[in-house]
Computed example of a mutant assay.
Amino acid sequence: MIEQPQLDKKDRKLPFKFDLQSYTLIISLISIAVIFTVLTGGDFLSSRNISNLFTQMAVIAILAVGMTLVIVAGHIDLSVGSIVGLTGGIAAMLQVWHGWSTPVVVLVALAVGALLGLWQGWWIAYRAVPAFIATLGGMLVFRGILLGLSQGKTVAGLDDSFKQIGNSYLPFALGYIIVAVAIVLIIFFTIRNRKKRAEMGLLLLPASIDYGKAAIYSVVMFLITYMLNRYLGVPIPFLIVVVLALFFIFVTNKTAFGRRVYAIGGNEHAAALSGINIKRNTLGVFVIMGALAGVAGVLLTARLNAGTVSAGDGYELDAIAACVIGGTSLVGGKGRIIGALIGALIMAAIDNGMSMMNIGAYWQYIVKGLILILAVWVDIVSKNK
Rank of each mutant, 00 (worst) to 15 (best):
N352W: 04
M356V: 04
I337P: 00
A340L: 13
V378C: 14
N384R: 15
I346Y: 00
Q364E: 11
A340V: 15
Y362N: 11
Y362P: 10
G369P: 00
M357E: 06
N352H: 05
V376N: 10
G353T: 07
I366A: 06
I380V: 15
S355Q: 11
W363Q: 05
A375V: 11
G343L: 12
K383S: 09
V381H: 13
D351W: 07
I342D: 04
A349N: 01
I373V: 10
W363L: 04
M354L: 11
I346M: 06
L345N: 01
I338A: 14
G343A: 10
V367Q: 01
Y362D: 12
G332W: 00
A361R: 11
L374K: 07
M354T: 05
M357I: 03
L372S: 10
V378L: 15
G335W: 00
S355K: 11
L345Y: 02
M354S: 07
M347N: 05
I380C: 08
D351V: 04
I350H: 03
R336D: 07
G339P: 02
K334L: 06
K334A: 05
A344F: 08
K334C: 03
I373D: 05
Y362E: 10
V378Y: 10
A349S: 06
K383E: 14
V381K: 13
A349R: 03
M356D: 03
G369A: 03
G333P: 00
I380S: 13
I380G: 09
M347E: 04
I338M: 11
N384T: 15
L372Q: 11
D351K: 14
V378S: 14
Y362S: 11
G369Y: 02
Y365W: 08
A349V: 01
Y365G: 12
Q364K: 13
I338F: 12
L341K: 07
M357V: 03
M356W: 01
G360A: 14
I359L: 07
L341P: 05
D351Q: 13
N358A: 10
L370P: 01
R336N: 12
G339W: 03
L372W: 08
A349Y: 01
I338N: 15
V381P: 15
A344S: 08
G333E: 00
A348G: 03
K383H: 12
S355H: 13
M354Y: 08
L370D: 01
Q364L: 09
V378I: 15
N384L: 07
L374C: 07
I359W: 02
Y365F: 10
I380T: 14
Y365M: 12
N358R: 08
A349W: 01
S382V: 14
G339I: 02
I371T: 08
G333N: 02
K334E: 05
K383D: 12
M347C: 11
G339T: 04
V331C: 04
W377C: 12
N384W: 08
N358C: 07
M357K: 04
I366C: 02
M347R: 06
S355V: 12
R336A: 14
L374H: 07
M356R: 02
A340I: 13
G332F: 00
A344K: 02
K334D: 05
Y365I: 08
A349C: 06
G339A: 06
L341V: 03
M347I: 12
G335K: 02
K334M: 08
D351F: 08
I371G: 06
W363Y: 07
I380E: 14
I342K: 00
L374Y: 09
Q364A: 08
